[in-house]
Design a protein around this nucleic acid. Sequence first.
DNA 1: CTATTCTGGATAGCGCTACTATCCAATGTC
DNA 2: GACATTGGATAGTAGCGCTATCCAGAATAG
Lengths: 204, 204
Amino acid sequence: MRISELSAATGVSVPTIKYYLREGLLFEGVRTSPTQADYADEHVRRLRVIRALIDSGVSIAETRGVVRALEDPPPSPHDLLGAAHAAVTAHFDEDVDVSAAEPLVRRLGWQPGICDPDVVAGVARALQAFDRAGFDIPVDVMTAYLDSVSLIAEAEVAGVPTDSPDAAVRYVVLGSVLVEPLLLALRRVAQQVASARRFGVSAS
Amino acid sequence: MRISELSAATGVSVPTIKYYLREGLLFEGVRTSPTQADYADEHVRRLRVIRALIDSGVSIAETRGVVRALEDPPPSPHDLLGAAHAAVTAHFDEDVDVSAAEPLVRRLGWQPGICDPDVVAGVARALQAFDRAGFDIPVDVMTAYLDSVSLIAEAEVAGVPTDSPDAAVRYVVLGSVLVEPLLLALRRVAQQVASARRFGVSAS
DNA sequence: CTATTCTGGATAGCGCTACTATCCAATGTC
DNA sequence: GACATTGGATAGTAGCGCTATCCAGAATAG
């Protein structure tokens, strides 16, 4: 398959494919001559994954991390998850007060050492944003958040495919990242449903 | 309070405050002369909300929508939620196949007419991304997602303050938007906790 | 065998976003 | 009266995700 056929098969323009090659998102094809390379079905699949990530709002740099985790997965499933999270979790030098997040994440079963510090820092940053905006979450609502994410994570971990390592890698890496927009979108729908039930829909 | 004091009180630079004024994120101060205006505590609070939103990844245009909803809230709580969602829900002209999302959102209690079409389209776009990436969600996991977002939304709607309309507006508008990064961060922590429990933490 | 098309590779530019910098005359402050 | 500050306008910046252009060499069509 030549680059133009790869482009036709995926709907991604040739210059954009070249750009992804330059950026290290897509591995190179097999060179058949100094000015020719052969691309395989694997390239088509990878390109579709790249597009799905980028269309979901993942940046080029984060996408690079995700595809690297797919290509070169750590042996342990737990480290694999960590790699997927590290790829999409921004690292800030700005020091956030992680201690504010600790009582919260402890309620999820967190203990020192089992989580990537950047992931916990993400919780702390979100809480800091509340604080700065002068926004408080009712205790019952926070409890619902914690119960829900526990429920979600348990189901997700239970759903990791055990038959094929490749399938497990795809599930963990893509599941961590691609599901985020879905969850937010579902929450909005559920909010509107609950709100309609509680307050009624205004005539318009 | 003059602009330099407003800047000192919030940590936002004077040129940036001017920029927010130009962009309509911050209402103007009371003019005391052709080249002077007086800013109040309300400006400090608003500026903090603006910074919290922008630091949470909300764009200038979306932030403008959010602060407009705060300033000029629709009378019905349901419409208020709709305004908050509309502010942060991207509208795409690209036609997504909304029918793919329907069976899913129906399980949340959705019925035609009670949801903003763009919100449902967000679900459809997320599903489209799965499809394009060749990623499937196990049925049990999807059920956990639906149960969880229902739980979340019920608790959130039940938590709407009833004592003060102003507090209700703040809760609905900021709660829709600012909570999103928190939920994603909590999910990551819960995933790492569940994964550590299931697979163990590798020695390092 | 020539003409055309296509290749990988390199470089430059574009449109957008969220600021940031500079300049101005009018005004306030000491 | 000297100097800083103000609102207002305009222009410039850095980063992101492409996109456009050019090139010499290679494949392919007639």
